[in-house]
Amino acid sequence: MIERIVDEIPRFFTWYNTIFFLQAMGVTLALTLIGCGLGSIFGFALVYGRQTRGRLFTPVRVLIVGYVEIFRRIPFLVLLFIVLFTTEGFGVRVSFFGIALIAICVISTAYISEIIRAGFEAIHRNQWDAAEAMNFGRVATLRYVIMPQAWKVILPPAFAYFVMFIKDTALASQMGVLELTRVAKIFNDRGYSAFLTFGTCLLLYFILSYPLTRFGQRLERRLASSRNR
């Protein structure tokens, strides 16, 4: 086996193939960044909607809670299929990249909204009370009082979630998105050894994920020891 790999290496790591892999790495990263970035924005919106009061908004709150609970309990792979077939079924033309992106958004919105909610709940009730008694509106309360305190609680788990999703995007290969796993599979199908193709693929994921994981751990320690300001 070793001879086979050694034999294949010069043919495998050509200029063209290397660029192909690097581009795929870019696609993996783009999926994660854009998907989770949008997920953060929507997740924040969900938390905002969940904080509404009064009977008028009860349906909104029920929908949000239902959304969050359901989409945290559906496998990413199954959601990818649902998005793929739904867009196809209704004749909406979306690229494979777009389908994966929608699926990532749908799931990350649900998870990140829970992370943000937990962050808000970590801020003592009396901060909300004081702001309300001083006539702060909801937006002003979040902007001046809650977010400046809550981001330190929210950022570490949100960042860890981003990094975790780098790995989960591997499933987008099933939709035909030319990301890392897909490209490795293509080379494997062309006859290159699985250890070489998928080994390279694993290594590239590791290069993406490991430094970010370490950075996230340091970030967490730094924020945990920093004072409240």
Binding site: N126, A130, M134, P148, R229
Partner: peptide, 14 residues
């Protein structure tokens, strides 16, 4: 205006 038992000062502001 109210002054609370636990002061409720905004912790992120001087």
């Amino acid at each position: 205006a109210i002054v609370f038992q636990q002061y409720n000062l905004f912790q992120n502001m001087n």
